[in-house]
């Protein structure tokens, strides 16, 4: 099993507050990795660190190594290139206030693709991969803001896919969606892992159990346990993991 992301001895401080404590974990290629834990445990902080979303956060200090395909995310990558390689989907769908087409074409355009035919192909391909082409192919010029929440989230996934990333980070991607839209995103994630690697922060234990291959449990900035999802949800090694997943706290 090849690891696309390796995190070694990672500490993260927000001023005096230590949000991540000596994290060591790998994210396997072409798998879905779920990051679970109670609010404030550091899982979203870790996800954002993989995409350097903390760069502009005042007082944020990161130590240790974050490697993408063996290269240091903080030293060997230009942040724009990094974010092309590592896409991000947020909790609340955040389409740009522009057409469906322009939302998806936005990334490729910023990376210099100008030809209409090329952009058309990229938009169709990305919307197809996000399982929303059939729903939107006749509404490409309409505003993305008129879509339902579930459609907006899949559009945001398409927008992230349009720049052909290697890794897709999802921060509670379905927490604002209805059950049908959630199911569509989950099925989509299952399909996408054939081509991409997905890291998914979720509060939804059932979702983690359903779709992820690996699950990492975080508590108070520490990674308590990381193992195959079936192991975590059937035989957690650590008592704190068992207490959390069985709802004894959190």
């Amino acid at each position: 099993m090849e690891n696309i992301i390796e995190i070694k001895n990672a500490d993260l401080h927000y001023n005096d507050f230590k949000a991540l404590k000596n994290i060591n974990m790998n994210i396997p290629k072409h798998e879905i990795t779920a990051l679970i834990g109670p609010s404030g445990c550091g899982k979203s902080t870790l996800l954002k660190s993989i995409n350097r979303m903390n760069d502009l956060v005042e007082g944020c200090k990161i130590e240790g190594e974050f490697l993408l395909e063996g290269k240091n995310i903080y030293q060997d990558y230009d942040v724009n290139i990094l974010r092309k390689e590592v896409g991000m989907v947020f909790q609340k769908p955040n389409p740009f206030p522009m057409s469906v087409y322009d939302n998806v074409a936005y990334g490729p355009r910023t990376h210099g693709i100008r030809k209409k035919k090329d952009l058309d192909d990229i938009v169709e391909d990305a919307l197809n991969k996000a399982a929303i082409w059939e729903e939107l192919k006749d509404r490409l010029k309409k505003s993305a803001l008129g879509l339902s929440g579930g459609q907006q989230q899949r559009l945001c996934i398409a927008r992230a896919l349009a720049v052909k990333p290697k890794v897709l980070l999802m921060d509670e991607p379905t927490s604002a969606l209805d059950p049908i839209s959630t199911l569509k995103i989950e099925e989509l994630a299952e399909e996408l892992k054939k081509e991409y690697t997905i890291a998914n922060v979720t509060h939804n234990m059932k979702q983690a159990a359903r779709i992820s291959d690996t699950t990492a449990f975080f508590l108070l900035g520490e990674m308590i346990e990381c193992n195959q999802t079936t192991e975590i949800f059937s035989h957690p090694r650590n008592n704190k993991t068992e207490e959390y997943i069985t709802g004894r706290f959190g």
């Binding site: 059932k206 949800f233 059937s234 069985t246």
Partner: peptide
């Protein structure tokens, strides 16, 4: 309750 781990067992 969709139990997991020890509860499921």
């Amino acid at each position: 309750q969709t139990p997991v781990a020890g509860d499921l067992r």
